[in-house]
Amino acid sequence: MLMIEILPDKCDFCGCCVGICPEDAIELKEAEIRIIEELCTNCVKCVWSCPIEVLKFNRNGVKVNLDA
């Protein structure tokens, strides 16, 4: 279950979390970012490293919007 959430309205698309992710589970285009649920291990290193508090850990799981 995916427990990491990206708050897209706060994201600056800087790529810091992408560089840290040990699983290559974060995909970043110009101004689009998403976590690849199948690869993410909820290790939360991305949450710790975000300079502007865009990533959140949610123990109850995160809904993935398939329409996005």
């Binding site: 600056d12 800087c14 790529g15 810091c16 979390c17 840290i20 490293s49 975000c50 300079p51 502007i52």
Partner: peptide
Amino acid sequence: TQIAGGVP
């Protein structure tokens, strides 16, 4: 401007 970034 305000920007974020990671420096390895």
